[in-house]
Amino acid sequence: MGSSGASGNLEGEMEVDAFRRLFPLRFHERHLLESIRPDARPLERARESTVALGAVASADGSAMAKIGHTTMLAAIKMEVMTPSSESPDEGCVAIDFHMPPICSPFVRPGRPAEVAPVIAKQLSDAITSSGMINLKELSLTTGKAAWMAYLDVYCLDADGALFDAALLSAVAAFSHLQIPAVSINEDGRVVTMSREDGDGKLANDPVIKERRKLTLNCILFSLTCILHKKYILADPTAEEESVMETHVTVVLDSSSRLVSLYKPGGPVLAYASAVQDCIALTRHRVKELQKILNEAISDMEVD
């Protein structure tokens, strides 16, 4: 089946979908020759992204992030734990990433996605090694009680660039997080102050910490790029990811330091020039995402 020429009648149009299914690589390469992608984006542009804070009312902090069709929902629940003896004045953050069967036709209830534990580990490595969260802020009483923040990120729709969307939703959820006000009751248990309890109603300890937000030392943003021959495509869709297998994920923080450059193999070798280009694309994307996140935060504060 030769490459269907530019014959503009119905027959030519019907062939496009078939050509896309049967020869996906050639279909994409034809587009790359014209420096465009099947969804009419130029090579360096990422898809439209949105962030909405406070999606889950019952969680202490939550956010929903969408990059194109990829949708992630992140929620943080705070629980109390006894801190370990090596670091009695530090809390802990546990990050988990789930891909439920609704998100993609390749995930079944008995057969979890291969990439889910890898993305979970990448997320927790990026967040802990960058020092975004100061664990000492999560402490309640030194040596006795500290906060354990459970961050769960659920993928609701998988369409490529999963790590980017997951990191965006995790960062947004942390910026939305409000640590509840608590006090210690007679049994030594930490209890939240509900609004009906007045101040100093019983012989409780005075409120340990009032309701407050977490301060983030730096904010992380990332961009996944695909390398194919001489081209670099930013923010791939799932179809592009399956056809061209070399991915590079760059995570930068708000002061442009490199938190992670992750390239897990792939047929195309990355030379220093390609690495520089990816990092430049990520810098550009960091500015876009910063703006989107700040707008979402200020929308929340207005309410």
Binding site: M81, T82, S84, S129, P180, V191, T192
Partner: peptide, 17 residues
Amino acid sequence: MAGKAASVPSTYSPSPT
């Protein structure tokens, strides 16, 4: 930098029962 010990501490939720 290197991973911490993998023991999962038990936690409880502070919301009132």
